[in-house]
Design a protein around this nucleic acid. Structure first.
Lengths: 411, 411
DNA sequence: TCAACGTGATGATGCGCATTATTAACGCGG
DNA sequence: CCGCGTTAATAATGCGCATCATCACGTTGA
């Protein structure tokens, strides 16, 4: 048994050339004034075929070449538990794309968790090096780390839109803004006018986008934006009824299932009395739970696209850092930021509003256990200020700040 | 920005020692007559801490060291789509274990598919090399490839019991035999006597084990083994009723959901008239489908255990092939083959047999659309011959061949 | 006084490949 | 006959690390 794996030197010997020549043939030669005659080229190629030579990735990488290994790193404390997790489906897409691309996937499961999120420090950096490039998942990325990636010109792609200073960061995101607008439109088309929004806390990009979409769509229809945001779901349900909302859109992380329970507990049926549209897939689908209407984030597709993009970046980069500071021909800027559409989902939580609700308020007939009507949420604007740092957003038609409008409404 | 990543040489310079010394300190020095005084050791350690040095995996690997990267290879044509697939849950467990172990996971998604299964030829071999060791998934392993792994002393662990010449192959499997026996016992304990088995085709290990368990348990209770195996599920359902079986155990790949449909179509309720126990998790769970009784394979746990075992093998091996042919102290043989218990699942498809069924046959009252009663399956022994090559099985109490018994029964 | 030995560390080498610098052979005009 | 440009290929180097063979320097025992 050839304990000694076949190397370029072996191939070279068989072809009667030098190791360097083999390397040149394998890599298209071009680098400097090196030429290989078509004849020897064929000889080498034959030798490779006969010996079944295959490059040693470690050696390739050490010498500055490419490995055909792409990495996946996540900022979340726990690595995508491939299905239970929100991030799981991305991995599925990534795997799929990797198969087609013929690359291997390296999961950086070893990165240490510090302060509830994974860090890319120290050993992290070095480990990244085995891969030609890396996919980044999760919300809580670290500025310093990113800067380092940028500085070293290490190819990477984010999964999930990057708002702040996003034009520097390649990403594949989902069109939360547009999809949310469509949900409002669906409701409006059925006759809904009092449409609420639940779940606007958090400064993560999806939430910001959903809120933006909601605001824009409501405004476009001349409707009033109403935010329901209470710590307690029971209170929230009460508030929805108190405000005589006929529909709410809600982000999936806000326990829609439980919200519906609370609503029905108070005599309001879903969707007959209150339609509920989910702005994404349910996070913890209940066994035999509702089939939610709303939209779904094409997570697998995002994974696929992200890996393809990364693959292109790597190819463009040639894996080497550019010594002259000038970028290789590379990838057109348009592809650097991809926003994928989120298709609507036809579920069982969307219905026409009740006729009487349309005509006149009769919410009083609905039970309001311990609802404090005057307690309209005032927190819906607390973090409005942070929108200022998002002005450098790239695409999406810019929407003016409608803070004042909201303020008058939510009183 | 230090484009030049920190190397052992840098650390050495700071500590005022040679690069070799740094390497020794990092690896516990021992190799030959090398000694490092505690003082310099500390000096080096400090330098490492200060510089934040971390080894370059590619270089380590090239020089014959370990990478802390463990690979996952699958023989299936498609890589475990991390949840839809049967193999998905294993990956989840593997990820989990990897996090705790502090290793990275390399998915060999690039291996080419030949003849419907992935191959480890050529480039495959080399790519394996980046990882310290590798987990193997799937049924259709190739002899030649395994032999090569064995020859090169490359550390690997199978997920799933390996019957044929299993003592040479480290694996983590599930106790299909025992679990299947328990299912029969559950049924018998409720009063079932006419218990059938469906889904015995195939020579994969799980199937062999299930059949073995069924046979053993039936025999232990003095009951008659009855195999139902028809190409058409409708026929199978008819056969079950014709034979007046009050219960069947069925492997999950045999469309239990559809079988139940067919049974009920013929007026036999599940489980009231026929109990159905599933020998594993359902493969394609239907939305709002039955909650199956039976047992479940602890797939995540298997993934975890497998990775742990692999990790130990790697550590024992030192990553180097043994030049003298003698194994490193290593892992006790007992751990090389792990069989995990499959806990019972309490579902809704198990019930006491009908009183009248117990007393006297009255199957005639049940509809038998186009059942050919005389058509007892004769195929249930066609591949019995291949059991001969399994005589070298390791653990599990050996069970004598009961072919004759079955033959008399199935007439 | 010197060989024998233990201690603490270093220099050199090679893993397999990419790449740069250099060489060899050849044709050709002056 | 020499210098020059062109083509075709090679030698040499280094990536970062593990390891083997050595070496310098005491300490002992005879």
């Amino acid at each position: 048994m050839p304990r000694h794996r076949i190397t370029q030197t072996d191939v070279a010997a068989m072809a009667g050339v030098s190791q360097a020549t083999v390397s040149f043939v394998l890599n298209g030669s071009t680098p400097s004034g090196v030429r290989i005659s078509e004849e020897t080229r064929q000889r080498v190629l034959d030798a490779i075929r006969i010996t079944g030579y295959a490059a040693n990735p470690a050696a390739q990488r050490l010498a500055g070449g490419l490995t055909q290994i792409l990495g996946v790193f996540t900022y979340e404390a726990t690595f995508p538990r491939v299905s239970q997790d929100f991030y799981g489906p991305f991995l599925v897409g990534i795997e799929h794309a990797a198969e087609r691309l013929g690359v291997d996937i390296l999961l950086f499961t070893s990165a240490r968790v510090v302060d509830g999120r994974r860090r890319l420090t120290r050993d992290g950096w070095q480990r990244l090096g085995v891969a030609d490039g890396c996919l980044l998942l999760g919300q809580h990325e670290d500025r310093g780390e990113l800067q380092h990636l940028l500085d070293t010109n290490y190819p990477f792609v984010f999964i999930g839109k990057r708002g702040s200073d996003g034009n520097r960061l390649p990403y594949v995101g989902a069109d939360y803004v547009g999809a949310t607008m469509r949900q409002v439109d669906r409701l409006a088309a059925l006759g809904h006018r009092r449409i609420g929004y639940m779940g606007m806390r958090g400064t993560d990009q999806p939430t910001l986008d959903r809120v933006e979409g909601y605001r824009a769509a409501m405004r476009a229809r001349g409707l009033t934006a109403r935010f329901v945001e209470l710590d307690d779901l029971a209170d929230a349900a009460a508030e929805i009824l108190a405000q005589r909302l006929t529909a709410v859109v809600v982000a999936p992380e806000n326990y829609p299932e439980e919200l519906a329970d609370e609503l029905e507990l108070r005599g309001a049926r879903v969707p007959d009395d209150v339609s509920v549209l989910l702005l994404g897939q349910p996070h913890h689908p209940r066994r035999g739970g509702r089939r939610w209407s709303g939209f779904c984030v094409p997570r697998e597709e995002m994974g696929v696209r992200a890996l393809h993009l990364l693959s292109r970046l790597v190819a463009a980069d040639g894996g080497r850092s550019d010594r002259e500071g000038r970028r290789t021909p590379g990838v057109p800027d348009a592809e650097l930021h991809q926003i994928l559409a989120c298709p609507d989902v036809e579920g069982a939580t969307l219905a026409r509003p009740q006729a009487d609700t349309l005509a006149a308020p009769r919410a009083e007939t609905l039970a309001q256990p311990h609802a404090d009507t005057s307690r309209t949420d005032r927190r819906d604007r607390t973090d409005r200020t942070d929108r200022t740092d998002r002005t450098d957003r790239t695409d999406r038609t810019s929407r003016t700040d409608r803070t004042t409008e909201d303020r008058t409404e939510s009183a």
